[in-house]
């Protein structure tokens, strides 16, 4: 019995000491655990952002021309954007509520053509509130690059960091006069805007490339021929004008065999004159 008493007393003593030390260290441990969960929240938020947000806001938050503004954006983190929209709450609440409820109205000073959808399940979106919080944590973490002056992780795409709306080209096929286009930029735009989804891979819209079209001619050749066709209902007089009309006034003339109203009809509001010119200059080369 004696050795049991000794071992038991010793065990009690050791355990008490260990718990006492644990207790002394508890505030530091709790802080570390809290930071850990905040870190994991950003990890989760980054993955959710990748799956849901990149299509409009770009993979690195740089925004996409004609679609959605940059959120990896100094104006968001220095308070100027909050002041601009007259937001009285915190930046966290601004971002959290924007993600949760979307933007049913264009926010102050902008005329982005598309409205941001709701994301939180509370508003009928797909994300749980903890997921919205994760994305918020991830978005806010972009601010550290500006706070700490780490230029390598700031948004490199200065062209789209503006929260200002783009100077849209409109739906008139004569004005404004288009600047000279760059076919390479135009080709890139047809990919990023998703044109190729319907005009190359599937039969939803007429194929651009000669080898994919039953006539054996490319869109560049056909656009010159269409304006002289008997059933042509549009107002274009040149191949370039025909392409411009087809992009910004999609239902003025629909090629026989295709349905009107299928093609997105808002390109006049989402493309700049330069974007439009680039795309036309690319399409015209597809003979």
């Amino acid at each position: 019995m004696t050795w049991r008493t000794v071992v038991g007393t010793l065990a009690t003593f050791v355990t008490t000491i260990v718990v006492a030390f644990w207790l002394i260290n508890e505030p530091a441990r709790m802080k570390e655990a809290e930071d850990g969960f905040a870190g994991r929240s950003m990890e989760a938020g980054a993955a959710i952002y990748e799956n849901n947000c990149t299509r409009c806001h770009g993979p690195a938050g740089g925004g996409l021309v004609g679609l959605a503004p940059a959120i990896n954006n100094p104006a968001l983190f220095d308070g100027s954007r909050l002041a601009e929209v007259g937001w009285a709450g915190s930046l966290h609440d601004f971002v959290y509520s924007t993600i949760s409820g979307g933007r049913p109205l264009a926010s102050s000073g902008t005329t982005w053509p598309q409205r941001m959808p709701t994301w939180s399940t509370e508003y009928g979106g797909p994300l749980r509130h903890d997921q919205v919080r994760d994305v918020t944590a991830f978005v806010l973490n972009w601010g550290r690059a500006y706070e700490e002056g780490i230029t390598a992780l700031q948004n490199p795409e200065t062209a789209t960091t503006s929260m200002e709306p783009i100077d849209a080209v409109g739906i008139d096929i004569n004005t404004p006069e288009l600047p000279p286009g760059n076919p390479d930029d135009g080709e890139a735009l047809t990919v990023s805007l998703g044109c190729t989804a319907c005009h190359i891979q599937t039969e939803v819209g007429p194929a651009w490339l000669a080898e994919n079209h039953p006539d054996g001619t490319g869109i560049g050749t056909r656009s010159g021929e269409r304006i002289d066709a008997a059933d042509y209902t549009g107002a274009a007089t040149t191949a370039e004008q025909y392409l411009r009309e087809s992009i910004v006034r999609t239902n003025d003339y629909v090629v026989e065999g295709y349905e009107p109203g299928i093609m997105v009809a808002t390109y006049g509001e989402t493309l700049t004159a330069q974007n439009l010119s680039d795309i036309i200059s690319y399409l015209i080369t597809l003979k």
Binding site: E32, D35, G36, A38, G39, R40, M42, E43, A47
Partner: peptide, 13 residues
């Protein structure tokens, strides 16, 4: 597959 790793996340702790 992509994963993201945060400096504070302390996985496995």
């Amino acid at each position: 597959q992509n994963v993201y790793v945060h400096e504070d996340s302390k996985h496995g702790h």
